[in-house]
Design a protein around this nucleic acid. Structure first.
Lengths: 243, 243, 243, 243
DNA sequence: AATGAATGAGTTTTCATTCAT
DNA sequence: CATGAATGAAAACTCATTCAT
């Protein structure tokens, strides 16, 4: 089976593992299956990876490396411009816009950002699915989850670790962190994870699904807006909640 | 190993399986482990259950039987009263309240409802975790997911299958269904599934976590309120979104 | 293959392992071979033993349990009688006999003892062979070796741990311990380990081999005798060595 | 991994194999481990050696070539002088010295010989360990053992193959051969094989161990002396044994 | 209701060896 | 000389399941 096909053997192994782990989970996938799918001998998998577990770690770590930097880049790109122009001020508990147009501008950028993030997670939906599965079914990947949840504010690797143009930074409360995680990160990841299944289950096609989900994200952002502020502290928000 | 302890053998098996499946997933749990955890011989497990798979189905079906009826009861209790009193009208695309007090009343009931639902899912967090895990890692439980997502409106078992007091019913758009599922069901389930881990990972204790999550749910509902309406059609909502 | 043969499955496994480990060594023996030899499935071996290594430990520990108690019993039986009759005194560095006949008596008993010990080790030659092999090829069994070598004088499990009739005990010097080990224990064990090979290699039959080896042991004891003393301190002996 | 270090690749392979085979045995050592230890690729090992087995044979044969010639040289140097001077006569069953001083002289030479032999085996203790291990755990090296045991008197390669100055030769009985092997060769080899472990296990340091073992060898020789004879026939010896 | 013994078919992992370059 | 990639065969070990009692 000496392989000199278009793709290199190691890549084929990684792809096969991604496919199978995301479909059936880590435990339910056998090294034999990966070998067969990758058109490679079992032994070669152990030539490149220390163990089956090592293959998994490899996949997951490649995701968690990329995902944060992407997120940080997007956010800063959206916000820094407005700050420099003096139209946005980052207060401890909120983003304050000086004029309605600034809100609009941010809103548009946020919309674009959502689309980009959604595309990113959909592209990586297999590994995200693996990530979800394995963060549930093993004690592992808690560190990766922390990063996502952003509980460690000070952590230089965290989503909001890097200062904005004006030297300030978000000051998320714990409650806001919970909100962000469970009503933004989690839906996003879950949507990606179930994406292929959703097309089958629901009557909606890919395009409609994507559209519906983006709308939902927008609705969500709307809930944080209060006049010309975007609130980042739950307590203030509560007063604002009508019911 | 004759066991005549307080709990009966079959219960011990179910509890052991719940614990292990929720921690490690179905595939990663061996019948041997279940037997050891339940302080029972392997053979006895096969006396009570046809197969390992049968144990799982048993657990999952016990959840999905309960969860819908619970949800439906709560909702009807919250809404039917207002309808009968003529203070709430169920329109095709929205709930319309006749007066501000009705909104308040509904809001209070919704708050209570959230607390009850949250407690319910937390109580059943192990099986929910199993459910999440298995719905991701196998083709199984798609039907159960459908029920939860409510895509099948006409299904008599679905959340909205039962008419309200005035003979009308919700008329969720597909988009709204997506929203409800990914920004309500999914966060709720995920919160429950990760609950025990969250206490460890975050600095927050159980009470604070619960509080933060309930606040988040309220924030979310707020985003659906528009004057005296609660919008159920995304398209309308969009116009309403400030940014 | 449900086995209800004369021998029980576990015994058959132990016997098969003993045979194969002693012939080819632990590493060179596969669990498959043991299974085949024992007429048992591989899985059954893992039903009774945690691992292949566990099978080995089982064999070795069963030997090292027996061997010491046997040795201690023999020695005490030989010596205590003479002590009680006042014909033997245990001095710090030597055994002193009061009359030539006592020396003769001891000598006869030692001869008998040698025969018994030799028979014992020959009977257990397979496990001894395993023991030799594995004490060389792994860090393991050092504790067992210590016991044999008797470096730990005070250890209650050691060969000379138990007092004699007159409340005294041997007081072996380190040097004497080395002598005893390398010129008594080691030859004995090695003889047993190579026994089956010796018959093939040499022209001698079993009986002659046994006889020759016993003679050698006697010659050795002779080297410790000095008048009516049996010296137990090397330093004294040295003076006594003619050349 | 291009290696142009001080040592050549082949030497590094041989050293690594010696180290590992002596520690863990042939079967338990993998070619991979040898390669890692030697800082060489696996493939290079197969460039220099036909197979893993070939590496072993290479090591063992290097020892067994040396060991005999060394032994013979030593012996002849010790004895031939005395024979030529007419102070030692080699009889069929004993060495007879004409005067006490000759015995002393021989004794001194023997002492020196022991020291040399001990140093030699200690230097080669790793290969001796391998030799012991493999002679036990495989049919191999029986021929080499024969050589050592000297069963094959007539073999031109054997220890006593070469005549002494007076044209005579030792005439070891089978019994004496057994004695020599099990109470001289075996202890020597075993001492060397366990040497490194002994330092750890016992409280004795290298120097003390060496000293104690040499003393033991002297004690042993003493047991063969009878007046001005050194007996080479067990039967005669027996009468001489006091007990 | 309960179990100890047993197993076939699988799993993950390792190994000695080869070969094109 | 030297190597990275590759492999078939076999290793150790696990698993869900069965069955006589």
């Amino acid at each position: 089976m000496k392989n000199k096909d278009n793709h290199k053997a190691k890549d084929r192994i990684i792809n096969a593992a991604t496919k199978l782990f995301s479909r059936k989970g880590f435990s339910a996938t056998s090294v034999n299956e990966i070998a067969k799918e990758a058109k490679v001998t079992k032994a070669l998998i152990y030539y490149y990876f220390k163990s089956k577990k090592d293959v998994l770690d490899c996949l997951v770590s490649s995701l968690s490396k990329n995902i944060n930097s992407a997120a940080i880049d997007f956010i800063h790109a959206s916000i820094d411009g407005l700050i420099k122009e003096g139209r946005l001020d980052v207060l401890p508990d909120r983003l304050r816009f000086t004029d309605d147009e600034a809100v609009d501008c941010f809103s548009r950028k946020a919309g674009k950002y959502y689309r980009q993030v959604l595309d990113y997670v959909l592209e990586n939906r297999r590994i995200i699915r693996i990530f979800l599965l394995e963060s549930l079914s093993s004690g592992r990947y808690h560190r990766e989850m922390l990063r996502l949840m952003n509980f460690g504010h000070e952590d230089s690797e965290s989503l909001v670790g890097k200062n904005f143009a004006n030297g300030k930074d978000f000051n998320y409360s714990d409650e806001m962190t919970i909100f962000k995680f469970f009503f933004s990160t989690v839906p996003l990841f879950t949507f990606a994870a179930y994406y292929d299944d959703l097309e089958k289950i629901s009557a909606l096609n890919a395009k409609k699904l994507r559209h519906a989900f983006l709308n939902s994200l927008q609705m969500l952002t709307a809930s944080l807006v209060c006049g010309r502020d975007i609130l980042l502290q739950n307590k203030q928000l509560q007063k604002n909640i009508i019911m």
